[in-house]
Nucleic acid binder design. Sequence first.
DNA 1: CCTCCACAGGAAGCGCAGGAGT
DNA 2: ACTCCTGCGCTTCCTGTGGAGG
Length: 406
Amino acid sequence: MGLQHVFEAEFSKPTVFLDRNKIMPHYTPQNLPFREEQQATISGIVAVTLRGQRPDNIFIYGKPGTGKTSTAKHVMDELCSFAEKKSLKVKHVYVNCRTHNKKYKVLLKSLREIYPSEPDKAFQGYSAAYLYEKLVSFVRDTQTHLIMVLDELDKVRDLDDLIYSVTRSNDEIQVGGITVIGISNNLLFKDALDPRTKSSLCQQEMIFPPYNAEQLRTILEQRVQEAFAPQAVDSGAISLAAAIAAQESGDARTAIKLLLRAGELADDEKTTQVTDQHVKNARKSVEQEIILEHITVLPEHEKLVLYTIAALTLNRKPLQRLSGEKVEGVLYSGEVYEEYERTAKKFKFNDPVSARWYREYINQLEMYGLIVTTASGPGVKGQTRFIKLKVDALKIKEVLEKEFAG
DNA sequence: CCTCCACAGGAAGCGCAGGAGT
DNA sequence: ACTCCTGCGCTTCCTGTGGAGG
């Protein structure tokens, strides 16, 4: 006995969400507002597979959260399901090159998508050349049109090699073929490519512009309708989320994330209404999350420096300048370094970095916006900098302490 | 005014990992 | 598979700078 009520509580917990999945980062909506034109263009290009022709390769460029991946995936799903109905051999694979960042890995992932029933290690241990043969023979033997959607294409190290192989493969195939749809948020990388790679990859080029606030609003309204209970979200909350995202980057993903978090905050409060205040808090919460994520990938000794700053900030009384002015929560650069040396030893990180490099760390931390420094100015002897923490000291201390301990 | 202090940040160089070339 | 090269993180050394103090 006793546990039933836990489950009951969870089950009947009031929530502002109707279908939480619809607002998760990886959900691909079935209609994408303001991307009709791009969808039509891509569809037009790949539609020639239905008549047995090989489409041009496509290169899609656009900033994060502009719908590149969703659009490409959606068009591919539609194309493949249409082709299936007509029993035409059209297939697509999706590879995210951030994790599959080498030719070998891209080929491996593609084969696994093509043969999902094969065990994971079926293709492991073979050379890239073998995997390539395997892929080509699949296309040739089944006379399939294979479309490879390669997301974050700029992350592939031997891209010239990969593109060269894939385009060359089409020469040995009479019926069917391989088409590449490359996606990237870095336009500059295109110029660094081998000219032949560039010309074959960019047979068709597309640019996805960022969304403006109005468009983001429409997108959010649509998602809210699917994901939240009716009337659960204030229209002011939607507008604010759209405005924040538009101002920051025109990124639909952050806008959606903001609303998801706002909804979670409302649930925590046991409110049935998501207000703009929730969105404001959500923004803070998301920001802090990003900061914390940022911190965990910092170099070990940079974390130690940051930790030292947080620790010193927590037991620091306001500084009384000779001029009588009070400055709150600032630390001397030199004192931080000395304390850092002790801290490093305390946590068994031997040989702390030199004072010179410590200064470099301070500059880094300032660049990341985690601290601010100001010239000491009159009232202090020597030329030094005051260091002030810009983020929550307690949180930083907690997180890093846990990390150093474990 | 000069000197010392307490740093800031440039220059050179070192050891190392990983990519390119063969 | 091997060396060669390059970039990176870091140290050492050094010069510069603004204010305090005599």
